[in-house]
Write a protein that binds this DNA or RNA. Structure first.
Length: 359
DNA sequence: TAATCGTGGTG
DNA sequence: TCACCAAGATT
């Protein structure tokens, strides 16, 4: 028997004795599988669990999600990141209820037509919820396959992806495809980890080429990431009658649909104050006077870093209008918590509520 | 196709 | 401190 045949035979029994008891396991409810898979995209399971539990309390069914408002959905997602996942989930729930009678399709091909469901998630739902024989390929599976079969093609490249998907298709067994898929991912998360894999306790040790060659640390091969730039950014805190001004970002792009304190990037050769004045004119068509610095905030996104300076500021005579924002609103400090925000603006918001600013 | 899209844990 | 990277999808 070759290594490919032994792969599933060795990993399935291991999974049945070592699987973690995750809150979405033990059911094949397609809605539950769907939510858990979307939440788990690019996110550690440990982080997902409390969000999943709260989500199921708040949106226990597909219908309840479809009937909810996007702002409530984004609030439930706040802190998980990649907010297009929440927007797509909500959009998809509405269309499944309206167009598909509230029933998720069973096949991978049909699932892939739903907003936010790509090949991985479609295969995960099809196999776990419906028992379809479809392999998954996520970061864990890529790492396990690259090591066991000594794949030197860089992952993340089109060739590498094709090669690994093809290999994955040759490995999935006829029976228990859902358990098998979860088994490979579980092994990647718990044993075949990126650094210091626990090879002595791996059920695949006897067939793993990387282990035999001692090159676990060199698999998978990955292309280096470019360095990320740092942007200087400003934000304005306007106060009026005990309320502060916040703006909602457009429903696409970075932090789409989330609320923020208005401001933006400072350009080369501009002072912080000049940059803020320009940004508020562009965003809100309003002239302002920049007052004291409220606080400094640093945050790292995937492709850049931000050093943000938040200032108290006063509006001149003109009334602000949402030019770039989709909506603006004056809210009391106590109400800020009801508006979904990214991490930096939530920090500003929290500091504002507890008056932890510099001034 | 390559770039974009968050946040938190980890070594 | 910082690079890496995690149950990827979209445009």
């Amino acid at each position: 028997m070759d290594a490919k045949q032994q792969f599933a035979q060795k990993i399935l029994p291991w999974y049945h004795t070592h699987a973690r008891a995750l809150p979405w396991r033990g059911t094949s409810d397609p809605y539950v599988v769907w939510i858990s898979e979307i939440m788990a995209q690019q996110t550690r399971i440990h982080t997902v669990i409390p969000y999943f539990e709260r989500w199921m309390q708040r949106f226990p069914t597909l219908e309840s999600l479809a009937n909810a408002g996007l702002q409530d959905v984004l609030s439930a997602w706040e802190g998980l990141g990649y907010y297009s996942r929440a927007r797509n989930l909500w959009t998809a729930a509405v269309s499944v209820v309206h167009d598909l009678d509230g029933v998720l399709p069973h096949s991978r091909a049909e699932l892939e037509r739903i907003q936010g469901i790509g090949r991985y998630t479609a295969a995960a739902i099809a196999s776990i919820a419906f028992g379809e024989r479809e392999p998954v390929l996520d970061g864990n599976v890529k790492r396990v396959l690259a090591r066991v079969f000594d794949i030197a093609t860089p992952i993340g490249t089109p060739q590498g992806e094709r090669e690994l998907w093809s290999l994955a298709e040759t490995l999935i067994p006829t029976g228990q495809p859902g358990d098998y898929n979860q088994a490979v991912m579980e092994l990647g998360a718990m044993v075949c980890t990126p650094r210091s894999p626990d090879c002595p306790n791996c059920p695949l040790q006897t067939i793993c080429l990387a282990c035999e060659l001692g090159i676990q640390a060199q698999r998978p091969v990955k292309n280096p990431r470019p360095k990320v730039p740092t942007y200087t950014v400003t934000a304005a805190i306007f106060e009026r009658k005990g309320k502060v001004l916040i703006a909602r970002r457009p429903n696409r792009g970075l932090l789409g649909g989330m609320w923020e304190f208005p401001g933006g990037k400072v350009e080369e050769g501009e002072s912080l104050q000049q940059g803020l004045v320009r940004e508020i004119m562009e965003e809100l068509n309003a002239g302002i006077h920049v007052c004291d610095l409220f606080g400094e905030y640093r945050h790292a996104y995937t492709h850049f870093k931000v050093h943000l300076y938040a200032f108290f500021a006063n509006l001149n005579s003109s009334e602000p209008v949402p030019l770039e924002a989709s909506e603006i609103r004056w809210v009391s400090r106590a109400e800020l918590k009801d508006y979904p925000m990214g991490k930096i603006d939530r920090s500003i918001s929290n500091d504002l509520v507890s008056q932890n600013g510099l001034s």
